[in-house]
Amino acid sequence: MRRLAAPALVLAVIAAGWWLLWPSPGGVRLTIGSATHIVTVTLDSARVGDHDITVSVTDRAGAPETARSIQLVAVLPTMGYLSPVQTAPSVNSGRFVAAGVSLMAPGGWQLLVTVPGAAGPDRIPVPVTVTG
């Protein structure tokens, strides 16, 4: 038993270090509010590439958005890049998915989410930092 104690301890320390230093998967879930809506954007990872972006929209009271779709564009201001408009259809109450949004360079992106409304569209910028 005693012979095994020291190697076990060393292994435990290495395992703990491994676990601590392993990069986190980097999923993003950001919530932002405007005067009329609360928008939550979810990405599986914030790495360069094509992403399916889930957008949950409620009003300020928490009731899910009933629109059939919302629109989304991705902007990289430092490069002056603007993506084509992506229409994100509703998948269930208040949840919209924009498929294959291309975030092709690292940097500070803005996802401009446009929610239609009786009083005109509500355009909400969601900042997403994309790493290489």
Binding site: L30, I32, G33, A35, R60
Partner: peptide, 13 residues
């Protein structure tokens, strides 16, 4: 507050 958060009360009000 106008920032996007990972938790807590949403911004915008």
């Amino acid at each position: 507050p106008v920032g996007a958060t990972t938790g807590g009360p949403p911004s915008g009000l």
